[in-house]
Design a protein around this nucleic acid. Structure first.
Lengths: 240, 240
DNA sequence: AAAATACATATTGTCTACCATCGCGATCCG
DNA sequence: CGGATCGCGATGGTAGACAATATGTATTTT
């Protein structure tokens, strides 16, 4: 009875966010105003307001006279993501450990429970969304209006990247998920203890885990074909 | 002939931003939809879209059924600002030095010219706005969609803080402005040279200048009464 | 007399309907 | 076959009306 009383417009915004995060709406694709307004049972003016808001949050781009485009993901996006993520994540986590309230810690624990349940279910979207939620709560704990905009922007693409590559059948993936979930528990413990330094270090480690996983998908060939190398062919990783 | 062909809605958004940055609209005050829509000659729907957008950019806060509030500034805001600013400024400046294009450098030089002109004119609003513009161009140079949201948010309040305290009559202020302008020139030189490390260091120095100035206004009394000391009274600087 | 409640008013939120404008594709002509 | 023009669909914007909500005032009750 917390989100059930929300207006249709708020529900629309939430569902659009969810759809974009799960890549139900593909990055780079365009959204049709009338189609969406009909789908959510609202008229065009409030829908257009919602789109503006989502644009402000970084979910979509508005092109004058050419409609709303789901934020695209290019290799440049990925590059920039890799540059910004560790700094912001570490800073936010440090602040979260310094400022977290008991109520927020309780919310974080609830979210972590749901995250583990999602991993067990093998549902990629649920896993990604609950992971996003977990880190959003960390952001709320940090309580710094100047860092949160970047954190939110990062989490959008981090979630979408996770959706792109996640595959619950692969063993390595399950292993990574298990480690990530354990690290989340460590986050909770360190934040409860108020150990900002250790929390920031853990954030870096958590990021490294994610980074390695992403990189293993960007350059997958070097791992999957280790057999039958041509004589003299050294194992090269970079794509010419 | 670049901004003269813009729609009324875009002009409205621009003017609202300007008004908020110059504190023409006071932090924490509320905006009236019908009044603004009449003032800018547009109807309520597009104005409401504009407000949503500004909310996304951090200029205002939208309270359900209670209208739009200019982003307030409290001591907590200031505290958070001090925490986030040096990190983001340094990171953005480093990236700007790495990625700047000749066209962007030309724009930066133009902006710097206008900034110096504003200082000479003694107009607080112009000085603040051109300083904001200068750092916005640095942000564009950095070209990282994950850091820019926080940078933009920082620049809003940095500009407003500057407006609050700026006073062209004070000698110390003119001195600080001169140093700031010189540092801007150094930014340009280092970015043209592509020296990312030095640029990042300069960003920290530039921040320190601003920080010291802000702090000197938060605790101004200790400076203004150095005459007529009682015998034996040692010169103490700290408040209380 | 003070506090709580109910009402009146103003503002926000939404809808319908319509017109203007811009992009883009299809068609037509050189 | 290439380029220009026309038409259509989608977005951008306007107007007026109504519903929903919050606030402030006045009334009532204890």
């Amino acid at each position: 009875m917390d989100d059930s009383i929300k207006s249709k417009k708020a529900l629309c915004a939430e569902d659009l966010r969810r759809g974009i995060l799960t890549e139900e709406f593909e990055p780079g694709s365009y959204l049709d105003e009338v189609e969406l307004s009909e789908r959510y049972g609202i008229s065009r003016p409030p829908l257009r307001e919602t789109l503006r808001q989502l644009a402000g949050e970084g979910y979509i781009l508005l092109h004058e006279n050419r409609g709303a485009q789901v934020a695209p993901m290019t290799h440049k996006t990925l590059r920039n993501f890799f540059v910004a993520a560790p700094m912001i994540y570490a800073a936010v986590t440090r602040l979260a450990a310094e400022h977290a309230t008991p109520a927020q810690i309780a919310r974080l624990k609830d979210t972590q429970r749901s995250f583990r349940a999602a991993i067990a279910s093998g549902n990629a979207a649920d896993r990604a969304l609950w992971n996003q939620r977990f880190h959003s709560v960390l952001g709320e704990m940090a309580d710094n209006e100047f860092l949160l905009p970047s954190l939110r922007r990062l989490l959008i693409d981090h979630t979408r990247i996770g959706m792109t590559f996640y595959n619950p059948r692969k063993e390595a993936m399950a292993c990574v998920s298990a480690i990530a979930a354990d690290q989340h528990d460590q986050f909770i413990a360190l934040i409860e203890a108020g150990d900002a330094e250790a929390a920031a270090d853990l954030a870096v480690a958590h990021w490294e885990l994610s980074r390695a996983q992403i990189e293993s998908f960007v350059t997958p060939d070097s791992i999957s074909i280790p057999l039958g190398q041509a004589p003299g062919a050294e194992q090269r990783k970079g794509a010419s």
